[in-house]
Simulated assay, not measured.
Amino acid sequence: MRIAALALCGFTLVVAPAGSAIAAGCAFEAQGDGHVAAIIDARTFRLQDGREIRLAGIEPVVPETSAASRAPALSAILTGREVILRADDDTPDRYGRQAAFVFLAASENSPTETLVQSELLAQGEALVSAMVTDKDCAAALMAAEAAAREAKRGIWADPAAIKNTESPGDILAGIGRFMVVEGKVLSVRQAGATTYVNFGRNWTRDFAVTISRRVLPSFEAAGISLKSLENRRIRVRGWIEARGGPRIEVLRVGQIEMLGGN
Protein backbone atom coordinates (compact mmCIF):
# COMPACT_ATOMS: atom_id res chain seq x y z
CA MET A 1 0.00 0.00 0.00
CA ARG A 2 1.54 3.29 -1.08
CA ILE A 3 1.28 6.30 1.16
CA ALA A 4 -0.72 9.04 -0.51
CA ALA A 5 0.36 11.70 1.97
CA LEU A 6 1.49 11.94 5.53
CA ALA A 7 -1.31 14.43 5.97
CA LEU A 8 -1.61 14.09 9.71
CA CYS A 9 1.89 15.40 10.18
CA GLY A 10 1.14 18.48 8.15
CA PHE A 11 3.48 17.62 5.31
CA THR A 12 3.64 15.42 2.24
CA LEU A 13 5.87 12.40 2.46
CA VAL A 14 8.66 12.44 -0.10
CA VAL A 15 10.71 9.29 -0.39
CA ALA A 16 14.41 10.17 -0.35
CA PRO A 17 17.58 8.11 -0.26
CA ALA A 18 19.67 7.74 2.87
CA GLY A 19 22.52 10.20 3.10
CA SER A 20 22.90 13.96 3.20
CA ALA A 21 19.25 14.72 2.38
CA ILE A 22 18.14 12.57 5.30
CA ALA A 23 20.84 13.95 7.56
CA ALA A 24 19.75 17.53 6.91
CA GLY A 25 16.37 16.78 8.46
CA CYS A 26 17.86 15.87 11.85
CA ALA A 27 20.71 18.35 12.03
CA PHE A 28 20.30 19.32 15.68
CA GLU A 29 22.91 21.07 17.79
CA ALA A 30 26.16 19.13 18.18
CA GLN A 31 26.46 17.44 21.58
CA GLY A 32 29.97 16.05 21.31
CA ASP A 33 31.75 13.34 19.38
CA GLY A 34 33.78 10.21 19.99
CA HIS A 35 35.13 6.85 18.86
CA VAL A 36 32.81 3.83 18.97
CA ALA A 37 34.28 1.16 21.24
CA ALA A 38 31.47 -1.39 21.62
CA ILE A 39 27.95 -2.23 20.46
CA ILE A 40 25.61 -2.95 23.38
CA ASP A 41 22.31 -3.75 21.63
CA ALA A 42 20.33 -2.93 18.49
CA ARG A 43 20.30 0.82 19.21
CA THR A 44 22.84 1.42 21.98
CA PHE A 45 26.64 1.65 21.87
CA ARG A 46 29.56 2.74 24.03
CA LEU A 47 32.15 5.35 23.15
CA GLN A 48 35.82 5.00 24.02
CA ASP A 49 35.40 7.58 26.81
CA GLY A 50 32.76 5.39 28.48
CA ARG A 51 29.61 7.25 27.46
CA GLU A 52 26.67 5.06 26.44
CA ILE A 53 24.71 6.44 23.50
CA ARG A 54 21.18 5.46 22.57
CA LEU A 55 19.95 6.11 19.02
CA ALA A 56 17.06 8.57 19.19
CA GLY A 57 14.07 8.51 16.87
CA ILE A 58 13.94 4.78 16.10
CA GLU A 59 12.72 1.53 17.59
CA PRO A 60 14.36 -1.88 17.04
CA VAL A 61 12.53 -4.35 14.83
CA VAL A 62 12.93 -7.14 17.40
CA PRO A 63 12.90 -7.08 21.22
CA GLU A 64 16.14 -5.61 22.49
CA THR A 65 18.89 -7.77 23.87
CA SER A 66 22.16 -7.04 25.61
CA ALA A 67 23.99 -9.40 23.26
CA ALA A 68 25.91 -7.38 20.66
CA SER A 69 25.83 -10.42 18.37
CA ARG A 70 22.11 -9.76 17.94
CA ALA A 71 22.80 -6.31 16.43
CA PRO A 72 24.79 -7.08 13.26
CA ALA A 73 23.38 -4.15 11.28
CA LEU A 74 24.42 -1.58 13.86
CA SER A 75 27.77 -3.30 14.34
CA ALA A 76 28.47 -3.15 10.60
CA ILE A 77 27.73 0.57 10.50
CA LEU A 78 29.37 1.74 13.72
CA THR A 79 32.17 -0.54 14.88
CA GLY A 80 35.40 1.41 15.16
CA ARG A 81 33.95 4.58 13.63
CA GLU A 82 34.20 8.22 14.64
CA VAL A 83 30.78 9.73 15.30
CA ILE A 84 29.19 13.10 15.95
CA LEU A 85 26.24 13.35 18.35
CA ARG A 86 23.39 15.77 17.68
CA ALA A 87 20.35 16.45 19.87
CA ASP A 88 18.35 19.18 21.58
CA ASP A 89 20.28 18.43 24.80
CA ASP A 90 22.68 15.87 26.21
CA THR A 91 20.88 15.00 29.46
CA PRO A 92 21.32 11.26 30.16
CA ASP A 93 18.27 9.09 30.82
CA ARG A 94 17.76 7.31 34.14
CA TYR A 95 20.09 4.54 32.98
CA GLY A 96 22.89 7.01 32.18
CA ARG A 97 22.48 6.75 28.41
CA GLN A 98 22.66 9.82 26.20
CA ALA A 99 19.99 9.87 23.46
CA ALA A 100 21.19 11.39 20.20
CA PHE A 101 20.96 11.44 16.45
CA VAL A 102 24.28 9.91 15.51
CA PHE A 103 26.27 10.87 12.43
CA LEU A 104 29.25 9.06 10.99
CA ALA A 105 32.01 11.61 10.64
CA ALA A 106 33.03 12.54 7.10
CA SER A 107 35.89 10.49 5.64
CA GLU A 108 37.74 9.90 2.37
CA ASN A 109 35.12 7.35 1.35
CA SER A 110 32.19 9.50 2.49
CA PRO A 111 32.79 13.26 2.23
CA THR A 112 29.59 14.13 4.10
CA GLU A 113 28.21 13.13 7.47
CA THR A 114 25.86 10.14 7.37
CA LEU A 115 22.96 9.71 9.79
CA VAL A 116 23.11 6.26 11.38
CA GLN A 117 19.37 6.16 12.05
CA SER A 118 18.61 6.72 8.38
CA GLU A 119 20.99 3.92 7.39
CA LEU A 120 19.27 1.44 9.72
CA LEU A 121 15.83 2.52 8.51
CA ALA A 122 16.87 2.28 4.85
CA GLN A 123 18.07 -1.28 5.48
CA GLY A 124 14.76 -2.24 7.10
CA GLU A 125 16.54 -2.79 10.42
CA ALA A 126 14.55 -0.26 12.48
CA LEU A 127 11.18 1.50 12.71
CA VAL A 128 10.58 5.22 13.11
CA SER A 129 9.72 5.95 16.73
CA ALA A 130 6.49 7.57 17.87
CA MET A 131 8.53 10.12 19.83
CA VAL A 132 10.05 12.27 17.06
CA THR A 133 8.71 15.79 17.58
CA ASP A 134 10.69 17.74 14.96
CA LYS A 135 8.66 17.79 11.73
CA ASP A 136 11.61 17.90 9.31
CA CYS A 137 13.45 15.13 11.13
CA ALA A 138 10.30 12.99 11.27
CA ALA A 139 9.76 13.46 7.52
CA ALA A 140 13.33 12.44 6.77
CA LEU A 141 13.18 9.32 8.92
CA MET A 142 9.79 8.30 7.55
CA ALA A 143 11.17 8.68 4.01
CA ALA A 144 14.02 6.29 4.79
CA GLU A 145 11.61 3.76 6.30
CA ALA A 146 9.26 4.07 3.31
CA ALA A 147 12.11 3.43 0.88
CA ALA A 148 12.97 0.18 2.68
CA ARG A 149 9.32 -0.84 2.77
CA GLU A 150 8.93 -0.18 -0.96
CA ALA A 151 12.04 -2.26 -1.71
CA LYS A 152 11.04 -4.98 0.80
CA ARG A 153 14.36 -4.78 2.61
CA GLY A 154 15.00 -6.20 6.07
CA ILE A 155 11.85 -6.53 8.16
CA TRP A 156 9.72 -5.45 5.19
CA ALA A 157 10.51 -8.65 3.31
CA ASP A 158 7.95 -10.25 5.65
CA PRO A 159 4.33 -9.38 4.71
CA ALA A 160 3.44 -9.70 8.39
CA ALA A 161 5.73 -6.82 9.36
CA ILE A 162 2.68 -4.54 9.24
CA LYS A 163 -0.08 -6.00 11.38
CA ASN A 164 -3.60 -6.15 9.95
CA THR A 165 -6.40 -4.75 12.10
CA GLU A 166 -8.61 -7.59 10.87
CA SER A 167 -6.40 -9.99 12.88
CA PRO A 168 -6.49 -8.53 16.41
CA GLY A 169 -5.06 -11.74 17.85
CA ASP A 170 -1.82 -11.19 15.93
CA ILE A 171 -1.60 -7.66 17.32
CA LEU A 172 -2.36 -8.74 20.87
CA ALA A 173 0.43 -11.32 20.66
CA GLY A 174 2.82 -8.38 20.53
CA ILE A 175 1.66 -6.75 23.75
CA GLY A 176 4.39 -4.52 25.18
CA ARG A 177 6.12 -4.23 21.80
CA PHE A 178 6.34 -1.38 19.31
CA MET A 179 4.35 -2.22 16.17
CA VAL A 180 3.03 -0.78 12.94
CA VAL A 181 -0.66 -1.58 12.35
CA GLU A 182 -2.78 -0.90 9.28
CA GLY A 183 -6.49 -1.08 8.50
CA LYS A 184 -9.79 0.65 7.72
CA VAL A 185 -11.39 2.80 10.40
CA LEU A 186 -14.94 1.72 11.20
CA SER A 187 -15.91 4.52 13.57
CA VAL A 188 -14.62 7.38 15.72
CA ARG A 189 -16.29 7.76 19.11
CA GLN A 190 -15.65 9.89 22.18
CA ALA A 191 -16.13 8.54 25.70
CA GLY A 192 -15.28 10.97 28.49
CA ALA A 193 -11.79 12.38 27.95
CA THR A 194 -10.81 9.74 25.35
CA THR A 195 -11.50 9.47 21.64
CA TYR A 196 -11.58 5.93 20.24
CA VAL A 197 -10.66 5.25 16.62
CA ASN A 198 -12.28 1.85 16.16
CA PHE A 199 -11.39 -0.79 13.59
CA GLY A 200 -14.08 -3.26 14.69
CA ARG A 201 -17.39 -3.43 16.55
CA ASN A 202 -16.30 -5.51 19.54
CA TRP A 203 -14.30 -3.39 22.03
CA THR A 204 -13.29 -6.47 24.04
CA ARG A 205 -11.65 -8.09 21.01
CA ASP A 206 -10.98 -5.66 18.16
CA PHE A 207 -8.10 -3.21 17.71
CA ALA A 208 -8.58 0.48 18.50
CA VAL A 209 -6.51 3.65 18.75
CA THR A 210 -7.02 5.87 21.81
CA ILE A 211 -6.43 9.62 21.79
CA SER A 212 -6.58 11.68 24.98
CA ARG A 213 -8.41 15.00 25.07
CA ARG A 214 -5.10 16.77 25.80
CA VAL A 215 -3.76 15.63 22.40
CA LEU A 216 -6.73 16.94 20.39
CA PRO A 217 -5.33 20.49 19.99
CA SER A 218 -2.39 19.12 17.98
CA PHE A 219 -4.83 17.49 15.54
CA GLU A 220 -6.83 20.70 15.33
CA ALA A 221 -3.62 22.67 14.68
CA ALA A 222 -2.86 20.27 11.80
CA GLY A 223 -6.36 20.88 10.39
CA ILE A 224 -7.46 17.32 11.10
CA SER A 225 -10.96 16.31 12.17
CA LEU A 226 -10.79 12.86 13.75
CA LYS A 227 -14.27 12.07 12.40
CA SER A 228 -12.79 12.40 8.91
CA LEU A 229 -10.86 9.19 9.55
CA GLU A 230 -14.02 7.10 9.35
CA ASN A 231 -13.93 4.73 6.37
CA ARG A 232 -10.32 5.68 5.65
CA ARG A 233 -7.36 3.32 5.63
CA ILE A 234 -4.68 4.44 8.04
CA ARG A 235 -1.40 3.17 9.40
CA VAL A 236 -0.59 3.72 13.07
CA ARG A 237 2.58 3.06 15.06
CA GLY A 238 3.09 2.72 18.78
CA TRP A 239 3.25 0.41 21.78
CA ILE A 240 0.69 -2.37 21.99
CA GLU A 241 -1.44 -2.41 25.13
CA ALA A 242 -4.34 -4.62 26.17
CA ARG A 243 -7.47 -2.80 27.28
CA GLY A 244 -10.11 -5.30 26.35
CA GLY A 245 -8.82 -5.67 22.80
CA PRO A 246 -5.38 -4.51 21.61
CA ARG A 247 -4.78 -0.75 21.74
CA ILE A 248 -2.24 1.86 20.68
CA GLU A 249 -2.31 5.20 22.48
CA VAL A 250 -1.60 8.09 20.12
CA LEU A 251 0.34 10.90 21.77
CA ARG A 252 1.48 12.69 18.60
CA VAL A 253 -0.14 13.44 15.26
CA GLY A 254 2.76 11.83 13.43
CA GLN A 255 1.90 8.36 14.74
CA ILE A 256 -0.87 8.16 12.16
CA GLU A 257 -0.46 8.00 8.39
CA MET A 258 -3.37 8.28 5.97
CA LEU A 259 -3.14 5.78 3.12
CA GLY A 260 -4.45 5.99 -0.40
CA GLY A 261 -7.74 4.25 -1.07
CA ASN A 262 -10.58 3.21 1.22
Rank of each mutant, 00 (worst) to 15 (best):
P72K: 09
P72V: 05
P72T: 03
P72S: 12
P72M: 07
A73L: 04
A73C: 08
A73W: 01
A73D: 09
A73Q: 05
L74S: 09
L74Y: 05
L74F: 09
L74D: 06
L74M: 14
S75E: 09
S75H: 07
S75M: 05
S75T: 11
S75G: 15
S75I: 00
A76P: 03
A76E: 10
A76V: 02
A76Q: 13
A76N: 11
I77M: 09
I77H: 04
I77A: 11
I77R: 04
L78T: 08
L78D: 11
L78G: 07
L78Y: 03
L78N: 06
T79C: 11
T79S: 15
T79H: 11
G80V: 03
G80W: 00
G80Y: 02
G80K: 01
G80A: 11
G80N: 00
R81G: 12
R81A: 13
E82R: 15
E82D: 15
E82M: 15
E82Q: 15
E82G: 14
E82F: 15
V83S: 08
V83T: 06
V83N: 10
V83F: 05
I84V: 14
I84Q: 14
L85Q: 09
L85P: 01
L85R: 10
L85V: 08
L85D: 02
R86E: 07
R86P: 05
R86C: 07
A87H: 14
A87E: 15
A87S: 14
A87Y: 14
A87L: 13
D88T: 05
D89L: 10
D89T: 02
D89K: 06
D89I: 03
D90W: 02
D90V: 04
T91D: 04
T91K: 08
T91C: 03
T91I: 13
T91E: 09
T91Y: 01
T91V: 11
P92Y: 12
P92Q: 14
P92K: 06
P92T: 08
P92L: 11
P92A: 13
P92S: 14
D93V: 07
D93L: 10
D93S: 10
D93N: 13
R94T: 10
R94K: 10
R94W: 11
R94G: 12
R94P: 03
Y95W: 00
Y95R: 02
Y95D: 00
Y95F: 01
Y95I: 00
Y95N: 03
G96E: 02
G96K: 00
G96N: 08
G96Q: 02
G96L: 03
G96D: 04
G96Y: 05
R97I: 03
R97Y: 02
Q98R: 08
Q98Y: 01
Q98W: 02
Q98H: 06
A99G: 06
A99M: 01
A99D: 02
A100W: 08
A100Y: 06
F101Q: 07
F101A: 09
F101G: 11
F101W: 15
F101K: 07
F101L: 05
V102Y: 07
V102W: 01
V102T: 13
V102C: 09
F103G: 00
L104H: 14
L104E: 15
L104T: 14
L104S: 15
L104Y: 12
L104P: 13
A105W: 00
A105F: 00
A105T: 05
A105P: 01
A105L: 06
A105G: 11
